[in-house]
Design a protein around this nucleic acid. Structure first.
Lengths: 250, 250
DNA sequence: AGGAGTTTGTGAACGGGAGAACAAACTGAG
DNA sequence: CTCAGTTTGTTCTCCCGTTCACAAACTCCT
């Protein structure tokens, strides 16, 4: 729902009409034409994954869609529909095998791979990102921390040495990095993105408060700290301005 | 409206660097009954605001919907429709007065107010948030940094002293804080949220990777660093042709 | 084995947002 | 004043996502 390629969106027949390997029997469902998972569903899969991991840690072996939906904070019907895009991994009358479903989701997202990641801009936020355990624990491996400021070079952050930004191309090339994280000030972000794209990166997570323009085929997702706060402020203002209820959000 | 500002609260010359001034006799709350702004539009208003600020800084006085849409990275039709929810602030055949529109959007979001904010959890991320200039420049004023760990107390972060978490209720009460930011580990997040709600906070920005449950009337927005990366990984996996259901490519 | 109870997976209705297209309104020149 | 050119505001249509509701499928108890 956020920004993929602004206007690009060329649905060049990536239709993959492969025969969705049905578990047992029931091959009559004609292989869902082009098993394409809706964007909204993709955005929720990581949430389910986390909920499932929590259940595994809690020792739960199976769970119903109702339970899992509760843990994930969504409607159970939505959860079931989301999961149905992946296949039929549940058992009617029983529920889902927690560990099995967790693996299936992880595989679908691609977390069974190892994803090397570079982080550019090692300020406060870059520090936090480099130390964030949620990356490493999900198959994302920070292979390099880059910063343009020479004063930061050789500083040790999260066990990694901060390197000059100029080493970007070399690192991306030799380590096959596909994902880059931008945590620089806004003014530098577009330049960094250009360099990243030129070096071969095709997915960018942008924390800089600016709109990046990238060629088609490159995905950009934006995380904007202050925008979220502004959205809250809007609703807060409405609340205190005592507008008629109109059903609060969940 | 008690303005007992903590001792160290001296923003480094960036108090409202946005230069937002209200025209004469502005109304505090838009209070536009019958006008309900769609959630998707609300989420884009901050983006427009930022683009407009950039235009102002660039010396542009007026702009067309096409220009502004370009700067914001959206479709011009969408932009016009979004703005139409606020009112008719443009001039046909001419465009929008950049400064005027900027003020109207800021007012609609509520950024003409001063929003005191508390941040709980002063780890790596909390540091980054406390130092993030994007908050202060948009009317958000960090009034307190709280952490449960006594080892962090009295540490100076962004000019503010880190205080014990137990002071939450007092600070929220005396400073009329409505917005809280959670940057704690996941296990602590729900407890912090409960305390925040009990103390009177009605909007929470949650950076902890967990689902918070709060009573009706309390808004929660979640920012999850690793989820965004996982979404990118999903698309990346698709691009490289390594489909999850192993190469069943036609 | 058979029936009652549970839970998944999915077809269908529903609501909201995106984008195209156009009428209304403004500017400026002749 | 009139007309051509420009740009907004709005309407209309389409599509995606959410939700409901129910048949299919499985377990358990008798």
């Amino acid at each position: 729902m956020t920004s993929r390629t602004p206007a690009g969106e060329t649905p060049t027949g990536v239709v993959r009409a492969d025969g969705l390997r049905s578990p047992v029997g029931h091959a009559d469902v004609p292989a869902r034409p082009g098993r394409e998972i809706p964007e909204a569903t993709v955005a929720r899969l990581p949430v389910y994954l986390r909920a499932l991991t929590a259940l595994v840690d809690g020792g739960t072996a199976t769970c119903s869609s109702e339970e899992l939906a509760g843990a994930a904070g969504v409607n159970s019907a939505k959860l079931r529909k989301d999961l149905s895009y992946l296949g039929s991994y549940g058992t009617r009358g029983v529920g889902y095998d927690v560990d099995y479903l967790r693996y299936q989701i992880a595989r679908e997202i691609g977390l069974t791979h190892d994803w090397p990641v570079v982080i550019v801009g090692i300020g406060n936020l870059g520090h936090a990102l480099a130390n964030y355990s949620g990356f490493r624990s999900r198959g994302f491996r920070v292979v390099a921390l880059l910063d343009a400021a020479t004063t930061r070079h050789e500083e040790l952050v999260a066990g990694l040495e901060v390197r000059p930004f100029d080493e970007l191309e070399d690192i991306v090339g030799t380590q096959s990095v596909a994902i880059g994280v931008i945590a620089t000030p806004a003014v530098a972000a577009q330049d960094v993105a250009d360099r990243m794209v030129a070096a071969g990166i095709t997915s960018i997570l942008n924390f800089a408060p600016t709109v990046l323009s990238v060629p088609d085929g490159v995905d950009v997702r934006k995380v904007d700290l202050s925008i979220e706060l502004q959205i809250l402020a809007y609703h807060e203002q409405r609340k205190t301005g005592q507008l008629p209820t109109e059903g609060a959000s969940a």
